[in-house]
Amino acid sequence: MKILAMDSSGLVASVAFLEDEKIKGLININYQKTHSQTLLPMLDELLKTLGDSLDDVDYLACANGPGSFTGLRIGVATVKGLGLGLGKKVVEVSTLEALALNWQGVDGVVCPIMDARRSQVYTAAYIFEDQDAVPKEIIAPVNCTIDELFEKLAANGKKVFFTGDGVPVYREYIESNLKVPFVLPSAVNEYQNAANVAVLGKAYAMEGKAVDASLVTPVYLRKPQAEREREALLNAE
């Protein structure tokens, strides 16, 4: 099985090519250039280097959120365009679940945190019960404050393994406020990585969860500001 995977939900633009059991190729760029300029050229570069053709890919996979609204849409629009152009199905993978694979197999709770600005994070929590690729979700993806997250982690009590671009933002806050033992990531397992998306994409494709490209939808976990303000106004009346 060949899977072409991508993640542009955060600072990193990442593309990966999975063939059966191995990650045959991976390109990660964590640099200021906008994803709209980098993602497709990276994908082209990857395929050319591997000598693989897009036509031989079985499934496309894409991190569909949460994340930066614009970054997410660049990735999702790209995969929707590829899907229509190739007539191939797409596997949607949660950005948070893919991030959790940065700590695959650890004994404890894996907690991805993504900076959602306004003192909030996009987060979730997972545990690895066996050698399966797919982690088990114990806190569903949510947009909340870091304190709300800390309460849940404290209630659980287990050691926490953090990952995600929220870590550099909240590092000191975690160090001085979290009541349970924790481990922070290093440069190798802090960010999004399309290899994780590819691995989960394969697992979900085998479960028959691939969908038509037209159905791929970003998961924002947050309404547009104008919509929130309008609702607040309506509720106040």
Partner: peptide, 11 residues
């Protein structure tokens, strides 16, 4: 733009 580029590339 992202959609059009990807679709054209695939086709």
């Amino acid at each position: 733009v992202s959609f059009a580029k990807a679709m054209a590339y695939a086709a």
